[in-house]
């Protein structure tokens, strides 16, 4: 346990430095010791694809910091960015794409520059057992095959478009879903034969779908940035939470869910 704890503490300190915050007590909010000065409620706006892993991280963080409550608002990254820019009282914003993060920082609502805490990669989601025997990206253009993509306006859709155009695969999907869960549920219900979604999504739905990895996905790795918000009601709590996410503990939870470490 010892070395690990030290690493976590170091990671926490790094995060604090990266977040541009010199203040604070110098304790390790991400570590196993309870952080002094971190109390109250931390409100985290996080991308929907982080639902499972952040819920877990939140519980760990609360356990490590008695007296702290973490409240989550999970939704599409762009919806969250809109809410923040319209003045929603949030402490932390974790986005599924740099683009939505940029919308927030461009509006001057970020405190310091965002940091990437995880990466996600596309896989081909197919019904469990892969009945159509899909093995490669090019298989998706097979006639009669129904494929769901995310709309280009949302991160998973932008990534899919990048991958498909780079691989020169002329795919005509039957639907452009508004978020990755929508695309995934179409696979679960058997309405489509395949969908391009994140690896984390297929992990979370492993009972119903399989994820088919394909090499071209390396060309569109999706970065997940996180930032403490400028108008954060609980700035100390926000910094501690971000540090915890970026700690070894946080990273372990995230990679367990299928994310890649940054």
């Amino acid at each position: 346990m010892g070395p690990r704890m030290v690493r976590a503490t170091l990671a926490g300190l790094t995060a604090l430095t990266l977040a541009g915050c010199g203040g604070g007590t110098g304790s390790s909010p991400g570590g196993s010791t309870s952080g002094s000065g971190v109390t109250g409620t931390v409100t985290v706006f996080a991308a929907a694809s982080l639902t499972e892993s952040f819920t877990r991280i939140g519980e760990d963080f609360e356990a490590a910091n008695p007296g702290v409550t973490v409240r989550f608002n999970f939704a599409g990254s762009s919806a969250l960015a809109n809410q923040i820019n319209q003045g929603a009282p949030a402490d932390v914003f974790a986005s599924a794409a740099p683009k939505n993060m940029q919308a927030v920082t461009d509006a001057g609502n970020g405190d310091g520059s965002p940091a990437t805490f995880a990466r996600n990669q596309l896989v081909i989601a197919v019904p469990r057992g892969n009945p159509k025997r899909i093995a490669a990206l090019a298989d998706l253009t097979r006639p009669g095959l129904k494929v769901a993509l995310c709309a280009e306006q949302v991160p998973c859709g932008a990534a899919a478009a990048r991958v498909l155009s780079a691989a020169r695969v002329p795919l005509r999907p039957v639907t452009l879903e508004q978020d990755v869960k929508g695309a995934l549920s179409k696979v679960k219900l058997g309405e489509v034969d395949a969908a391009l979604v994140y690896r984390t999504d297929t992990r979370a739905a492993a009972d119903d779908v399989d994820g088919v990895e394909f090499p071209e996905s390396a060309g569109a790795v999706n970065d997940y940035p996180v930032v403490v918000l400028k108008n954060a009601p609980n700035r100390a709590g926000a910094r501690a939470f971000v540090a915890y996410v970026r700690s070894d503990r946080g990273t372990a939870v995230l990679t367990g869910a299928g994310f890649q470490a940054p």
């Binding site: 599409g76 683009k99 999907p173 039957v174 639907t175 452009l176 508004q178």
Partner: peptide, 28 residues
């Protein structure tokens, strides 16, 4: 509509879907 019929321009993308997608794209 978006759950049952999906969202594809010219086929199933009605105005409300287009509005939502435009908001999602950050184009208020």
């Amino acid at each position: 509509t978006i759950t049952f019929a999906g969202n594809y321009p010219g086929v199933t993308q009605t105005m409300p879907l287009a509005v939502y997608q435009t908001i999602e794209g950050g184009d208020l």
